[in-house]
Write a protein that binds this DNA or RNA. Structure first.
Lengths: 196, 196
DNA sequence: CCTACCGATCGGTAGG
DNA sequence: CCTACCGATCGGTAGG
């Protein structure tokens, strides 16, 4: 019984992982349940013993990712570092997630618009919330004279999207290592914020 | 005859513009020809008097945008400015295109993977080419000691994706003006490159 | 530009 | 987990 439960859980996880890979590659709408079933190695109808619907798969991916980032943000918020230090930690976390957890993060970032209500509104509001908290850290740094006077929400958008650009790096067979990539991104972006 | 030709051309342009708006909003795969026909105000079958296929619409959008950017890049390459100046011009052009020509640029950026061969390979190679030329300008600046020693291809990815992040700004009803946005982005990104 | 329609494919269910 | 199948919808064509 415990064994069967474990087995079922791992098959569901397999489905979610393969789905993330396919949604990333072809997009949510262009991925069919028959395509997915084939890469999992079962018939399309059998998928429905593990998941309720195609949309439920997307929900699982998007909210898993959202929770990982939100939990990390709370940890960083309550740390004792200064603003630049907090932003650096935030960036490193984003970059590492993008490298290590690539398919899921990418899908959460680009395919969430195919979420259905009420999940769509829920996801969008989590997203807004995350960006607001990020912007608050930047504004804190501006107040304390660590960071140059810039529009914080704009800086957040730039930073977040810059990181999601690692996608292409990932595809290009890693001409530089993950560590080098991280240092390069930090150098460019943190120094764009820091007060001269 | 000239009048009829003009009329037909403008109807095709209307279809392309509406298609860009819908592809941006729902994604290429999730947009049906019936949806598109409805917003244009005709029956689905009538679309085919103006365009050959759904994919041809995507091709028109993607290559129009690619050509606009490529032409501009060539102009900038042959200018007499220094590297930082060239990059600044390049950034301003990208930002303005993103603001003024939003739907098409966004679609070209995010939906090109639904292109079919041989257009897909063609588009990807134009894209690689553009990034290589952009990276070459950065490397030139590093050689001339205007720009700090960073990995140029990484900087290109960061910059290009940072700009595509304006999408969210666009959606958020412009809390700051387009000019302010441009100056903020320049400040953050150019100063991340410039040699201290 | 429309009506009428095609074959293919979609997400999902019934029943075992 | 499979076979068999459903209604809906897809991109696109024929013919006028």
């Amino acid at each position: 019984m415990a064994k069967a439960a474990r087995k079922k859980a791992s098959k569901k996880e397999l489905i979610l992982r393969r789905a993330a890979a396919m949604f990333r590659e072809k997009g949510f709408a262009a991925t069919s349940m028959r395509d997915l079933a084939e890469t999992v190695g079962i018939e399309a109808a059998s998928l429905y013993n593990h998941i309720r619907s195609k949309n439920e798969i997307l929900e699982a991916i998007c909210f898993d990712v959202a929770n990982i980032f939100f939990t990390n943000l709370e940890t960083i918020e309550s740390s004792s570092k200064n603003s630049i230090g907090k932003i650096e930690d935030l960036l490193r976390f984003h970059i590492r997630q993008m490298v290590e957890n690539y398919e899921e993060v990418y899908v959460s970032d680009r395919e969430w618009k195919h979420l259905e209500e009420p999940y769509l509104s829920n996801f969008q509001s989590q997203r807004r919330n995350y960006r607001k908290k990020f912007a608050a850290i930047i504004n804190e740094g501006i107040d304390k004279n660590e960071i140059r006077k810039i529009d914080a929400p704009t800086a957040v958008l730039i930073i977040l999207h810059a990181i999601s650009g690692i996608e292409s790096w990932h595809r290009s067979k890693a001409k530089i290592s993950a560590e080098e990539l991280e240092e390069n991104m930090l150098k460019i972006m943190i120094d764009g914020l820091r007060k001269p």
